[in-house]
């Protein structure tokens, strides 16, 4: 009997330990994508007797969509102050000295419940030798206006689920599409949120002291439709797609909401067709729907690649 038991023990042990480890699915998704929930200070400015704090997710400005929270307090008090006429303008300077901005909210309105000024900026590039970013902020308190500029660093967005794209539409306007959510998609039905912006061409030359906001005007486009066709571009996936996806339409928050289903983790291409409020195609092409194993998936002329 003892012999038999001695024989059994190694057999049991050898089997109880699996040959291949099971995938830790939650860790698997976290490995590629880190989700940021917390707003932390990304820039701080002292001007006159006031202190301005600009918070962003993870305390960092990234290329792409950034929700920001601007707080103004007295230099010696921690009380957040409401102030009328707060403006916010990001400006990028190229190596040749030319300047541009990016989609942003210019006039910030105080949110009394949360005690900050909500805004956003869709940085179109990362800070580097050829590109520097500055924030121009102005506000008025007690009929006295204050203006300040502050250099910031815009970092690369490593999370491809927050990618963005810039293009010129068939109406010759310059458009921006930036992904806002989900930061961390799942193999599931995901609510897909994107911002669609356009550059308002200035109608007159710059005037007044720099910056002239009319030269850097962007707006959220209204009542457009972003048709969605998600596909896996890998040749081995043969143009694989998913079902139950919903096109993106504008909601009350100004952003465009739709639904994307990811059937597995990996590389996906969000193929878009952008229609204006009259249903006219401004950009994007239909992609083939056939299953074509071994052939890299054809992308729409308007697309954003994601990865999770």
């Amino acid at each position: 009997m003892k012999k038999a038991i001695f024989f059994l023990i190694p057999v049991c042990l050898s089997v109880m330990s699996c040959t291949k480890e099971k995938t830790d699915y939650e860790a698997e998704i976290n490995m590629v994508v880190t989700e940021h929930y917390e707003f932390k200070e990304a820039a701080a400015i002292n001007i006159d007797d006031y202190h301005i704090s600009i918070e962003a997710l993870n305390g960092t400005f990234y290329k792409g969509y950034n929700e920001i929270r601007l707080k103004i307090s007295g230099a010696n008090t921690n009380e957040n102050i409401n102030a009328p006429a707060v403006t916010f303008l990001p400006v990028m300077t190229n190596a040749d000295g030319s300047r541009a901005s990016c989609p942003h909210r210019y006039n910030l309105v105080y949110n009394a419940d949360d005690k900050y000024f909500p805004g956003y900026a869709v940085f179109t590039g990362e800070s580097g030798t050829n590109e520097t970013w500055e924030l121009y902020i102005s506000f008025t308190i007690n009929n006295q206006s204050h203006s300040v500029k502050q250099a910031i660093t815009v970092q690369e967005q490593t999370n491809k689920n927050l990618n963005m794209t810039t293009f010129t539409g068939k109406d010759s306007e310059q458009y921006f599409i930036a992904l806002v959510a989900p930061q961390k998609p799942k193999v599931a039905e995901n609510e897909l949120v994107a911002g669609i912006y356009k550059f308002n061409e200035p109608t007159s030359p710059p005037s007044g002291s720099f910056p002239d906001p009319s030269q850097f005007s962007y707006s959220e486009v209204s009542d457009y439709t972003l048709q969605l066709d998600p596909r896996m571009p890998e040749p081995s996936m043969g143009n694989h797609s998913s079902i139950n996806n919903k096109d993106l339409t504008q909601q009350d928050d100004g952003l465009y909401h739709g639904v994307v289903n990811y059937t597995m983790t990996g590389n996906w291409t969000l193929n878009f067709i952008m229609l204006n409020q009259n249903g006219k195609i401004l950009k994007g092409t239909e992609v083939p729907t056939d299953f074509t194993p071994g052939v890299e998936g054809v992308k729409s002329e308007l697309y954003i690649d994601i990865l999770f």
Partner: peptide
């Protein structure tokens, strides 16, 4: 589990 490897093995795998 299904784990698919892209042609370029250095790229990320696909999982479901």
């Amino acid at each position: 589990e299904m784990r698919m490897y892209p042609q370029d093995r250095s790229k990320r795998t696909m999982f479901a």
